[in-house]
Amino acid sequence: MAFDAQLAFKEKVAKITLTGSLDASSAPRFKEVIEEAALQSPTKLVLLMDSLEFLASAGLRVLIFAKQKMGATVDIYVVGSQGPVLGTLEMSGFHHSVYIQDTYADA
């Protein structure tokens, strides 16, 4: 399934809906969307990942980039991630730095 990243803003919260396969071929698109979001200085970054079916290290590197670009005070929420994609996040230690949730109140 082709990758897509859709950005929406509401009250300084950046929400990005990720779908498809996030690997080295699609990571540049995700990085572009992160940069676009960072321009508006969000206070939170919410990643809706229910429909993200594949996550490679190139995608993880964009999450590191997001945290470093937006700053440590901008909390990152990973919402709806499940199965092996969630397993990859946890195996890589990302659950120590992002909030992993099944749902997001305003999602």
Binding site: A56, S57, L60, R61, L63, I64, F65, K67, Q68, G71, A72, I76, T88, M91, S92, G93, F94, H96, S97, V98
Partner: peptide
């Protein structure tokens, strides 16, 4: 020690081979 670092302090390399072996 690296995997437990907060993202703002993480280097962006090295994860790929780690995931291969896992």
């Amino acid at each position: 020690d690296i995997l437990n670092l907060p993202l703002e302090e993480r280097d962006i390399g090295g994860l790929g081979i780690f995931l291969v072996l896992k």
